[in-house]
Design a protein around this nucleic acid. Sequence first.
DNA 1: CCGATACGAACCGGTGCCGTATCGAAACAT
DNA 2: ATGTTTCGATACGGCACCGGTTCGTATCGG
Lengths: 202, 202
Amino acid sequence: MSDMNPTADAPRSPGRPRSVRADEAIVEATLDLLAEGSTIEALSIEAIAARAGVGKATIYRRWPGKDALLLDALRRLKGVVPQPAGHSVRDDLVLLVGAVGHNIDPRAERIMPCLVPEVNRSPDHFQLYQNIIEPRRKIMREVLRRGVATGELRADLDIEVAMALLTGPMLVQRLLRWHPELDDRLLPERVVDGVLDGLRTR
Amino acid sequence: MSDMNPTADAPRSPGRPRSVRADEAIVEATLDLLAEGSTIEALSIEAIAARAGVGKATIYRRWPGKDALLLDALRRLKGVVPQPAGHSVRDDLVLLVGAVGHNIDPRAERIMPCLVPEVNRSPDHFQLYQNIIEPRRKIMREVLRRGVATGELRADLDIEVAMALLTGPMLVQRLLRWHPELDDRLLPERVVDGVLDGLRTR
DNA sequence: CCGATACGAACCGGTGCCGTATCGAAACAT
DNA sequence: ATGTTTCGATACGGCACCGGTTCGTATCGG
């Protein structure tokens, strides 16, 4: 958000006001193009402008360059962090695990995989990614701790490893289509139950 | 391999023989560039030639285009499929899980993440990816089935879900640097033990 | 030594993008 | 009405790169 100040202190600049419509259209076009498979590096201001039905100048008037625009657009994609009910640890985990890699915006599902390489390359993108997922991880961490406190989960549980165990399978499935046959809707339950109970004969 | 026939039946073609050195240099350059973060689509014959210290014609003489070259290069990257000892199911799993996303060539670790978007987009690349990992999955599947047969693992085990549980955490860690603090060397053991025993208090 | 082939470098035509400038029209404040 | 700013559109120069081919040279077998 370079210089967007729609309210308050603005000294009521003269002239024609910026079109909110254009604002929205630009961000939407960016996300659409990403969702359609464009690489971050392949994404061009020109393509965005064309897709948004907007002059390039309109974009440059708002953002200094591709990176700034991208940051804004991805931020808007984040979605809402799910709030577990807090009754059953198992049910809370099913909810959270089901939310892994499953943002509200359906485009996110197509976009996130494309960000993987960037995340590995650019510290900035890595940071952005971490900022997006950290709140969700925090919630899961708290649920796990609660489980340990109530005795539902092993006392010697390594929280970080446990989170990897829970989120890993879902992410791999949704990011890489690991097993095309696996049912996405049932998977969260099966993952949570599998990890909680273990594979070994008891 | 379009037309490489270094031995045997060759009718001893006249003229200057192809430089094995160039052959190697081209493939190496391709893998290097990928490992350095280049996208598949961003990878150009020109860049490869430059990096290999080779004329573009030398490349076109061997491969019809980028795709064919890439296929060859990635194939050469695959590495060896690990062979479990077959004594303890747990130890076998540790070995296999440790091998997930961990090819012999250290560049593979950098390259694989960059392929994620392509794998999601192009059916061809998806197929190539599946061809590479399927042999490994098959081995793990067999180990799991053996565990069920010997009674070490639950009789009602869903093999596919179990594989997702085991490989998911490792892949996420190695693909996305999920938890930068987690020790890569210890992780396989902890994942296998965690999944086998479960998180619940027994 | 000769013909044949491969070699690296250089070349060519084409594409796409960036960032800016300009235009007539539109939308606001005064 | 007037001045200011933004609008979408279009054009521009400049640049970078890319795919494929050509070219003179190097290296082989015979």
